[in-house]
Amino acid sequence: MEHLINRRVKQIEISGIRKFYNMVADMEGTISLTIGQPDFLTPAHVREAGKRAIDENKTTYTHNAGNHDLRKAAADFYSKKYGVSYSPETETIITVGASEAIDISFRTILDESSEVILPGPVYPGYEPIITLCGAIPVHADLRENGFRMTADVIKKYLSEKTRCIVIPYPSNPTGISLNEQELKEIADLVRGKDIFILADEIYSELSYGEPHVSIASFLKEQSIVINGLSKSHSMTGWRIGMLFAPEAVSKHLLKVHQYNVTCASSISQAAALDALTAGIDDPEEMRMEYAARRDYVFDRLEDMGLDVIKPDGAFYFFVKIPFAGVNSFDFALSLVKEAGVAVVPGSAFSRFGEGYFRLSFAYSMETLTQGLDRLKSYLKSQ
């Protein structure tokens, strides 16, 4: 019966990140530096809020957009942290993680043959959804621009079919972010055009040095903003995302969301409310620890003579493979087999990631030390 499967589904693949992780997961003794999974526990008070929700029988459907108190907390969070005001009633939707927010955003705004400009390299969660919509992903080559998705690069890829520009920052896989001036220039470039900005800001609370700036503060009327609690509050399994958009757009996003999932988990919503109120500053302790790990890993990689840019946020390094003519999959496979340390091949992040590998520092300092020691030994042996 496989011949009856939707042809667009056949065109897409399982994420290269997960594919490689699954391949090496059962290799005994392997140190994995692959997955962007925070190694912190969900804060205790957030876990308790989830338990209370069960005990208080908060186990029914909620409003499609999410409980009003949570939507208000989410809108207050964005106003306090990033200075962008959204109506909890008409411009805020609680989703099943940022992934569902990405899905319903593309399905709401894209038509057949619409073009979507993506960074290259980029997180692999966008392109398959674009393809399923019958739209066309257009990757902007950022390799000669320090992996920065700036206006001067974007304008080279604009066409009459451009419907959306994806601005994910801080970036997975590079950790690169954009500063206020760069965001203003992007806003000026597309202002007044029939183009959406899809701003994936899931790592906004994990910014080092300069605080995160949302492009919606310059171009709210054309921006769809995605965030969530997976990275900021170590709540990956709770599956809570936040989607912000002007009312004229949000009312259509809500329709797709409603038919997709009805609503986010009521238990998770109760925990999320506690995270965004009592725990609004919880990410700070994690951010400080990640910053220390980032500095340590950067020094180690530089000491190995590797070509790498110090990330502005998130918890990834995107490292140039130091051997000519070796593709990223073969490098990563050799590294795990010969040295027992796993990283993600750069090819998982589009063809513009070829020649690189991604290393996650969302692991304990002990794990990072052991993994980097093995990486160093491997490089010396080649």
Rank of each mutant, 00 (worst) to 15 (best):
V308D: 04
R351M: 12
I240Q: 00
G340W: 12
A270E: 10
A98C: 10
E205R: 02
G241Y: 00
K72L: 14
I309Q: 09
V122W: 00
I117T: 04
G134W: 13
D188G: 10
L253S: 08
L335K: 01
I130K: 05
V319F: 05
T262W: 15
M149D: 02
A101F: 02
Q258Y: 11
F331V: 04
P88C: 09
F218C: 02
E366M: 10
L359K: 00
T174C: 07
D76A: 01
K81P: 05
A291V: 03
M23Q: 12
N57F: 15
A140G: 05
H3V: 10
N145S: 15
A270D: 11
E56R: 15
K51D: 06
S171E: 14
Q37A: 04
F147K: 06
D69H: 08
L333P: 01
R52Y: 07
V343H: 07
E354V: 04
H257L: 13
L372Q: 03
L189F: 09
E247F: 08
V190Q: 08
M242A: 07
I136S: 10
I202P: 02
S360D: 08
N227W: 00
A245C: 11
D312W: 12
L243Q: 10
S230C: 09
P283W: 00
L229G: 01
A271T: 08
R239K: 11
K19D: 15
L368S: 01
L41K: 12
T162C: 09
P137W: 03
K320R: 15
D188R: 13
E13Y: 15
L178R: 07
L306N: 07
A53C: 13
Y296W: 11
A140H: 05
R47T: 04
P43N: 01
E210D: 14
A216I: 11
D282S: 09
V138P: 02
I240K: 01
P124Q: 04
K310S: 14
S250A: 14
G353E: 00
S230G: 10
V153S: 09
K156Q: 15
G120T: 00
A314N: 11
P124G: 02
S87Y: 09
S350K: 07
N327G: 10
D69W: 11
P137M: 09
A271G: 13
S334M: 12
P211W: 14
M286W: 07
F218M: 11
S207Q: 14
F20E: 07
V225H: 03
V261I: 14
H252Y: 15
A74V: 03
Q222T: 13
G146S: 14
F315W: 13
G353T: 01
I165R: 06
P88D: 06
F106Q: 02
I129T: 10
N57L: 15
K72P: 05
D299E: 13
F352M: 05
A245W: 10
R293P: 03
T42D: 00
N227P: 02
L206G: 00
I267C: 02
E89Q: 12
Q382P: 03
